[in-house]
Design a protein around this nucleic acid. Structure first.
Lengths: 122, 122
DNA sequence: GAAGAGATGAGAATTGATTATCATTATAGG
DNA sequence: CCTATAATGATAATCAATTCTCATCTCTTC
């Protein structure tokens, strides 16, 4: 059975308040402001459980480590800051992207990533 | 000084003939058809040297491992087959993509990745 | 065709990310 | 409040990718 622990609540709260994709390390950092004793293993366990439960989804951006974000959000893409390495949401999407595939290829999804410097880093 | 070895020639030839982004493992596999004794460390060394020299460029797609492709090619994007995990070039690009960024963000590049099944795998 | 120096190949070592272990803690239910 | 048991946290273990080591090989030049 699933228990509602302090650390699980903190992790959920982090995702809801931050509103952008987070790596496990980022989750740990933010989560420790709520539950200082939070450990990395707990973050990995919960983030995985929340993803299995469909509450989080996996975001794979260039540059190593996986990130997670709230699932069930409207279609969107991402901006990756080359300076601070944080990922942000981009709430617009060019149309008809999936028609760009070569002849004979079957497309079932796409990801658009913008690179640059975020408002903070400029 | 740089020497023109059999293995380096083979690696260059692989990239020129295959025409899509390759992981070091894929380079090894193809390269061994030309120089059977080719080793993985040599692939890593040369791929890195060729990238430093500007002859190859780095392609980071979701799903782990880095890939390399011929540099100095016209702007293009990529298709990643969910079945065989090979990456292919997509020679079209939606316009004005970089204008989709949030207010205050400075965009200096973008990557569009289509997912699905390649012609072979269907 | 000899010699010097860069390159290679096999395997060991390293790295960073993720997972497993296990003693301890804390939650849900009675 | 008590108890059973899921969850936690610190650390060790694992894993895949990449780099290093070093004896050996082979380009290049003379």
């Amino acid at each position: 059975m699933q228990r509602d622990t302090r650390q699980r609540r903190a992790i959920r709260r982090v995702f809801m308040s931050v509103g952008r994709p987070l790596t496990p390390d980022e989750v740990l950092e933010h989560g420790q402001r709520i539950v200082p004793s939070l450990g990395l293993a707990t973050v990995y366990r919960n983030v995985k459980a929340l993803a299995d439960a469909g509450w989080l989804s996996l975001v794979e951006l260039p540059g190593g480590g996986l990130r997670y974000e709230l699932a069930e959000r409207p279609h969107h893409h991402h901006f990756l800051c080359r300076s601070c390495d944080l990922a942000f949401d981009v709430h617009k999407c060019p149309d008809e992207v999936e028609e760009l595939a070569p002849e004979g290829f079957e497309v079932d999804g796409h990801e658009l990533i913008l690179f640059g410097r975020c408002a903070e880093c400029r």
